[in-house]
């Protein structure tokens, strides 16, 4: 079996995997990082979104061996200790989650959106989230949360720059 090595949430990890093992399976089964979810089998739902080398990726569309040498961040790696990432905090403040199942993918996707578009409009947020399905919220509060999260991230970036 092939061996893969990668950095996950800042830690160096490696393991032997079946060549057909998906990245999401490696994260969930080998590393026990179960915050990344699997909601479909056609790469539509986005519950499995993680960051690979800083960009959002559906971890069910990538084999574990394809992430060899990469830097992967999962939802478990977003907070600083017990202090949530501004986007996580915004989701809580705006009631942007109900059952929580799609939430990790939503947060990871939203953070990547703000990285490329620091002040997205409602239409841009709704368009960007086309690859993340939520059945609970009707997206209303998710849109509010992403907008709020973007504002918090901008404020933090501004504070860091000053």
């Amino acid at each position: 079996m092939p061996t893969v090595s990668m950095t996950v949430n800042g830690k160096q990890v490696s393991g032997e995997v079946d060549a057909r093992k998906l990245l999401v399976e490696f994260l969930r089964e080998n590393l026990l990082l179960t915050g990344t979810h699997v909601g479909c089998d056609t790469s539509q739902c986005g519950a499995c979104v993680v960051h690979v080398d800083g960009r959002s990726v559906k971890s069910c569309t990538m084999l574990a061996v394809m992430a060899d040498g990469a830097s992967v961040t999962t939802i478990e790696g977003m907070a600083s200790g017990e202090t949530m990432h501004p986007m996580q905090e915004a989701f809580r403040e705006q009631h942007g989650l109900q059952c929580g199942f799609c939430t990790p993918g939503m947060v990871m996707s939203a953070v990547d959106l703000v990285a490329v578009n620091p002040d997205p409009s409602e239409a841009e947020i709704r368009h960007w989230l086309g690859g993340n399905i939520c059945r609970c919220t009707g997206y209303h509060n998710i849109v509010e949360a992403v907008r709020d999260g973007a504002a918090r991230m901008r404020a933090l970036g501004k504070a860091a720059a000053e």
Binding site: R28, E29, L32, L33, T34, G35, T36, H37, V38, T74, I75, E76, M78, A79, M84, Q88, F91, R92, E93, H95, L97, G100, F101, T103, P104, V107
Partner: peptide
């Protein structure tokens, strides 16, 4: 604000498929 949110937002939920 919801008490349950932090665990869901930090990837600490405990769904059936998460159980080994």
């Amino acid at each position: 604000k919801r008490k349950e949110d932090k665990r869901f937002l930090m990837g600490r939920g405990n769904y059936t498929d998460d159980i080994a």
